[in-house]
Nucleic acid binder design. Sequence first.
DNA 1: AATGAATGAGCGTTCATTCAT
DNA 2: CATGAATGAACGCTCATTCAT
Lengths: 191, 191, 191, 191
Amino acid sequence: MKDMIMETGIQLFGEKGFKETSIQDLMDELKVTKGTFYYYYKSKEELLKDIHLQYINRLVQHQESIINDESLNCEQKLYQIIYSLIHDIKKEGLTAKVFFREMRHLSDENLDVIVSKRDKFRLNIQSIVEEGIVADEFRSDLPADIVTFGILGIANWSYFWFQPDGEKTDEQVSKIFHEILVQGMNGPKNS
Amino acid sequence: MKDMIMETGIQLFGEKGFKETSIQDLMDELKVTKGTFYYYYKSKEELLKDIHLQYINRLVQHQESIINDESLNCEQKLYQIIYSLIHDIKKEGLTAKVFFREMRHLSDENLDVIVSKRDKFRLNIQSIVEEGIVADEFRSDLPADIVTFGILGIANWSYFWFQPDGEKTDEQVSKIFHEILVQGMNGPKNS
Amino acid sequence: MKDMIMETGIQLFGEKGFKETSIQDLMDELKVTKGTFYYYYKSKEELLKDIHLQYINRLVQHQESIINDESLNCEQKLYQIIYSLIHDIKKEGLTAKVFFREMRHLSDENLDVIVSKRDKFRLNIQSIVEEGIVADEFRSDLPADIVTFGILGIANWSYFWFQPDGEKTDEQVSKIFHEILVQGMNGPKNS
Amino acid sequence: MKDMIMETGIQLFGEKGFKETSIQDLMDELKVTKGTFYYYYKSKEELLKDIHLQYINRLVQHQESIINDESLNCEQKLYQIIYSLIHDIKKEGLTAKVFFREMRHLSDENLDVIVSKRDKFRLNIQSIVEEGIVADEFRSDLPADIVTFGILGIANWSYFWFQPDGEKTDEQVSKIFHEILVQGMNGPKNS
DNA sequence: AATGAATGAGCGTTCATTCAT
DNA sequence: CATGAATGAACGCTCATTCAT
C-alpha cells in the first residue's frame, strides 16, 4: 500500500502538481479513505521527499555504474548518461517532472539532502568533461562547469517536449544531442 | 496601480510560486486592501495570463527584430537569440521562472494563446536552423526540430542556475554555448 | 462582531471547554460562517489569549483601586478583595472558569504575560497580609505567602460551587469567609 | 497491563490533559500498539472513569477511617482531613489534577456516580463542622455548608501551587491552614 | 478607486474506534 | 493477548471571490 500511494503520488503530482493534488485525490484513486494515508506517511511532504529521494538515488546509482565502467572513454560515458536521462522519460517522466518542479515544497532540512545529491550528479558529469579535456578528447578552452550546465540543459529539457511514442526514439534523440555536443567540444588543447 | 500589481505578481509568483502566493500577499506588498485587486483584475488567473502574455510577446518581438536583421547570417542570428535569452535573466529572470513553471495554472482557453506564441518562438528558431542548413552553414544530417529543442534546452536551462552576479557574464556564457552549438552543427551537406 | 465573538467564546469555552468548542460551534451561535472568525482573529488561541488578558487586567485594575484606597485598613481591604472575587461570579463566572481551566492552551509566549499578571495579583494580596502583620492587625507567626494561597483558595473555589441565584448572596458568603479569615489571623505579634 | 495503562493515563492526563492525550501517546509510553488498549478498556472514557473512581474511593475510605476514630475531637479530625488532602499531593497530585480538571469528559451516567461520592466526601466534612458546633468547639453563627466549601477551597487549591519539594512541608502547610480555620471558627454558641 | 466584511469550499491533519488475523 | 490496517468524522485554518458602501 505504501508503494501504491507513492506510485499514485508520482502520477498525480506529475500531472497536476503537488499543491494541486490533495490527499483526498490520492486516496480516491486508491479507493481507500484519507486516514489511511497518514498510517503510512506522517505528512504530505514526507511523500514528496520519498519520491525525490527514490528518483535521485536511482539516478546517481546508475550514473556511477556508467562512470565506473572502464571499457568506456569519456565521450562514450557522456553518451550513456545522456541516453539514460532521455530513456528514463518513458518510465520515469512523471517522477522527473515532480523532481524538477516541486522541489520547492520540501522543507530546508529535506531540501539539503536532495540538493547535495543533485549537485553530486552534476559534478560527476563535470568530472567526465574534465577528464575528457585532460585526455585530449575535448577542447581545453571551454570551462567544464558551464559546459556541464549546457549538457544538463539539453538533456533535461527533453522532459518538457519528448514524447516516448513520437516520431523519434529515445536512442535517436540521444544520438543527435550527443553528436552535436561531442563535435562541438572536439578539438586539441588550446585550440 | 495595475502595473504595480503585475510587477509584484511577477516578484512573488517567481519567488514563491503561483499557488503559494495569495492575493493577500500581493496586496500587503502594495499596502492596499484585497478588494482593490478585483477592481483591476477579474481573477488571479487573469493576472497570471497577463504576465505570460507580456513576457512571450516581448520575447517574440525581439526575436523577430533579430531574424529580420539582414546584416546577420544564420550563425550570428543564433548567437543573438541565445544571448538575448540569457541576457534577459538579469531583469526578466523571475518572469521567465513564472513562465516556465506556472503555465499549468492557466485555463485551456488562455493556454492556447500562450502555447501558440511559444510554439511560434520555437519555430522561428527552427527556421533559422533550416536556413542555415540550406546555406551550407550547418550539417544537413541533423533534424532541425530536434536540434531546436536542444538549443532551447541549453538556453532555457540557464534560468535554473545562471547567476547574473556570478563568475561568468551573460556574454561569456552565451559565447560558450554558441561555440559548442555552432561547431557541433558545422559541416557540409550530406556529411 | 469581534466583541460578539469574544462573548460567545467565553460562553462556550466556559461551558464546554476550549478544546471541546470548535470554531464552527462559535460561529453557528452567531449565525455567520467560519471564515468570518479568521477575519477578526488570527487563530483560536488568540481569542483565548484575549479572554485571559481582558479578565486578568480588569481584576488587577480593580484590585489596585482597592489597595490604593487609603480610607481602608488591611482587614477591610481583604474584605473588598474577597467580595470582588465572589461578586464577579455573577457576571464573570464563565470567564473565570476559562481563566482557571484553560490556561494550559496558551503558548509559552502568551502564558508568560498572563502568569506574571496573575502573580502580581497574588503578591498584591500578600502585601496586604504583610502590612496587616506590621500594623498588628494580624498574627505575625503566620507566613504571609502560604496564608495568601489560603485566601485565594477560599475565594477562587467559589467558582466551582457558588450559585448567584442560590440561597446565600455574594455579600453573605464574602462576609462569612472574611470573618473566618480575619478571626483566624487575628492576634498580637509573636503570639 | 491494565494497571500500567491506568498509571500511564494518570501521568499523561495529569500532565497534558485528557483531550490532549491520545491513545497513541498512552501506548507509545508502554511500547505496545494501540489495539491493545481496547482489549482492556472499552473506550477512552472508561479509563477516565476508572481513574476518577479509584481516586474518590480511596479518598472517602480514608476520610471515613478518620471520622470513625473516636479518639479524635472535631478539630483534630479536621486537621487529619486537611493533612490527608495536602499530603496526598506528593503521590496523588496528578490524579487530583485529573479529578478536578477532567470531570467534564465523563458522560452523565458516569458523572452521577462520581458526583455523588464527591458530595458524600463534602457532606462528611460538613458533618464534622456541625458536630463541632454542637460540641461548642466551633461558633454557631457560621453556616456549616458554606464553611465546608471554604475548607475544601483552602485545601484543594493547594493542588495548584503546592510543591512537595518546596520550602514548606505538607505538615507545615496543613498546620498553618488548620490553625487559621480553627481559630477562625472558634467561639461559643451565639457569639 | 478603494475598503471592509463576509462567504464557502477545500485542505492537511488528528484520532477514537473497529476488526480480521 | 496483541498487532496492523483501515475508517470516518471532525477540526483549525486558508483563500479566492463577492459586494455594499
